[in-house]
């Protein structure tokens, strides 16, 4: 088209050549990516499992076997692949006799500089959270990262009340992070002085996760206990 006009000095653009090049390059790249994905996927999955099991074991030392479940409105199923929309992944830890010891699940909320992810352990006997383990955070060293070490803060999670209301639809009291030194009730978390934003992120992450998970989980706990024995 432009070639028909002799005054035009721009050389004709061969669009066919461009399309051909791009197609070739993209298919080459696509092929490469697929090949490497297939090659690395097993190792990545294994790595993730190791990391997860290590965190769960650190939280629940008695765990001999850990089974992943998804809880959704339809019930509780053994997890396959990534959790479906609306489903919540949780981990049931069985001791060496095959008895259900505790449940672990992950909560996440935005902290000071990035998402803070926390694994929390739940036992039905006390209807409480008995411990947490931070699985991911990028908070300020020396300030926000005290959520991993601060004993007074961690003490709040040794018996954190998450009991459900009688209709099993929601938690009786929402888990709440309160100002340092003003914890009064079992469902409150004593914030770290100077690291309130991070402390609140932990509380919020746990609350959001537990509020959704526990109403779905508790009605099926018996079934989960059975399953563990069978496996």
């Amino acid at each position: 088209m432009s070639g028909e006009q002799p005054i035009h000095f721009v050389p004709p653009v061969n669009s066919l050549r461009m399309v051909r090049t791009l197609m070739l390059v993209t298919s080459l790249c696509g092929g490469l990516i697929v090949a490497v994905w297939q090659w690395t996927q097993p190792a990545i999955a294994a790595n993730k499992k190791v990391v997860l099991e290590r965190s769960v074991r650190a939280l629940i030392p008695n765990a001999a076997q850990i089974v992943e479940y998804d809880a959704s409105a339809k019930g509780v199923t053994v997890a396959k692949g990534d959790a479906a929309d609306g489903a919540i992944r949780f981990y049931a830890a069985y001791d060496k006799d095959g008895k259900l010891d505790a449940i672990a699940a992950e909560g996440a909320a935005r902290g000071y500089s990035d998402t803070v992810r926390v694994l929390y352990g739940y036992r039905q006997a006390c209807e409480c959270i008995f411990g947490i383990r931070v699985t991911q955070m990028r908070e300020t060293p020396g300030i926000g990262d005290k959520i991993i070490t601060d004993p007074a803060f961690l003490q709040s999670f040794e018996h954190l009340d998450v009991s459900l209301s009688p209709d099993l639809k929601s938690m009786f009291n929402a888990v709440k992070t309160v100002k340092h030194g003003s914890k009064q009730f079992g469902w409150e978390i004593d914030a770290i002085a100077g690291a309130t934003i991070t402390s609140k992120a932990v509380g919020r992450g746990i609350n959001d996760s537990a509020q959704r998970l526990l109403p779905l989980l508790v009605p099926h706990l018996e079934a989960i206990k059975q399953k563990g024995g069978a496996q």
Binding site: L22, V25, C29, V36
Partner: peptide, 22 residues
């Protein structure tokens, strides 16, 4: 073209690092 090629290798390195060390 350069960006497509570079992005491809970045994706590869992303997978490889995940496989080596999470």
């Amino acid at each position: 073209t350069y960006i497509v090629i570079i992005a491809t290798f970045v994706t590869l390195v992303d997978y490889i690092i995940q496989a080596v060390s999470l």
